[in-house]
Design a protein around this nucleic acid. Structure first.
Lengths: 257, 257
DNA sequence: TTTTAATGCGTAGTTTCAACACAATGATAC
DNA sequence: GTATCATTGTGTTGAAACTACGCATTAAAA
């Protein structure tokens, strides 16, 4: 009963404070154990999974709304967040009717009357440091969990397509911008970084050429420390030079005929 | 009076048939006289210009809506159209208040009551063959005209920023995908194509290297004809090989470590 | 102390890219 | 009809980037 009230209040809140027809969906990439992972939510009382999302307040910028929603879901504020596509197919809604949704939640169907039947959803992808995230489910979902990128189940709505496109965009981004600042701990080794790249690209890279290329970007500071503990030769630790990193992000290398 | 009725009807139509909070804006690129041009609309009874736009019907896909709206504005159906960014800043609306808008149109302010104060706008850019376009103004605008890309005035809303980003995206697109199919007439010469590239990129290119690179893509068929009439040596005519062209569009060359 | 396997640093071969040379050609001027 | 001119078609060369691979070094384990 308490939950029902909460939901109803939430819906009233939506109606008064948020834009209708527009939603935000997140593909949140994390990196752990040499695996690229995506944060998914499990829909209340079902075994169906979907991407975390958000909505936009009436007097709120889209980007602000994205950062706010993401923080609600992960607890992180300083994150790499980038819009990659806006999805607006009506078919997005084949899996779940409005009635089903309400039925699942045990709510009368009329609470959603007047709501538009579909949203246009702005897709963002985020890169976060796995360890720092505190996944938090919302009122519509029971659970919040990391999934290996190659073991994503069939998701609700068009969320599988979203992940695919987000990954494609991320891979392309890798080719003209440095990545890693938001995915690795502060200090890391070259093999760590290479594993990250290989995982994102889905292919192996030559160790020596990779190092040359990355160092060529001039965005890393090599520390005097080495990472001990593992077997064999101890690798140097590196740290992103934030200044140079930001500079590289802005001064995007454009291909010119 | 007649016009006022039309507008009111239009607004009723919007309320019942279209998504609120979502709009579409177009940066329509054309190419003529060695100049890259953009199609702009002049707002009714003012000297202020803006981008053409559209809205999404309740049961219509976003992309479908984009194609439909674009056809209404240009008369063209088979065009290159690509989403490049979604804009959602509240500041987008600084130039024009709801009241001003209504005032300009000579309408009572209450016709827009209940309308959300702002939209999230999905930006598309289009490439069209200049000569085939029939610019058509809508009910809110008096005039529809091509503007040289480097002579765009201060536009309404955030439309200047939209053009800037659209151009940036177009230029990047040029580096990993062929372009020209929708901007040039069926038969064209290599210098024609080069001029198009130079205009889009805003820089000159080496004639010989350009030819080598383009032919290397293997998307052109050289015809037996030559373009006569001009002074000096007659250049060959080329035509895009649609099959190969489409293939090149899909099989995007991804940078790999 | 020896072995092992990963790391740090370096080199050679290849491909790609940019800069430039020169002959061919179609209209124009005479 | 012929010479001139600007432009086109094709090729070459040197530099730079990229790929593939060699080898000595080193921390932990045997």
């Amino acid at each position: 009963m308490e939950y029902k009230k909460q939901i109803e209040q939430l819906i009233v809140d939506f109606r008064t404070n948020y834009l209708s027809s527009v939603s935000i969906d997140f593909v949140i990439f994390g990196f752990h154990d040499g695996q690229l992972k995506v944060l998914l939510l499990r829909w209340k009382e079902t075994d169906k999974w979907c991407l975390p999302g958000g909505r936009v307040r009436h007097e709120e910028n889209l980007e602000t709304a994205a950062y706010r929603s993401l923080q609600e879901r992960t607890g992180l504020s300083e994150i790499f967040l980038e819009q990659f596509h806006t999805f607006g197919d009506v078919l997005r809604y084949t899996h779940f009717s409005k009635e089903e949704t309400m039925g699942t939640l045990g709510l009368p169907q009329d609470v959603l009357d007047g709501f538009p039947g579909r949203d246009v959803s702005v897709g963002y992808y985020a890169l976060v440091e796995f360890a720092r995230v505190t996944p938090t489910p919302d009122l519509f979902t029971d659970e919040c969990q990391w999934w290996d990128i190659d073991q994503i189940p069939l998701l609700l709505f068009d969320h599988n397509a979203m992940i695919t496109l987000a990954l494609k965009t991320l891979r392309r981004q890798l080719s003209y911008q440095p990545i890693g600042y938001n995915l690795l701990p502060e200090k890391f080794t070259m093999p760590d970084l290479q594993q990250l790249y290989e995982t994102i690209l889905g292919q192996t890279l030559d160790r020596r050429n990779f190092q040359k290329r990355i160092l060529g970007y001039d965005i890393l500071d090599r520390l005097d420390e080495r990472k001990t503990g593992g077997a064999h030769k101890a690798p140097y630790l590196y740290r992103f030079n934030k200044e140079k990193y930001e500079k590289a992000l802005k001064g995007e290398v454009l291909f010119v005929g």
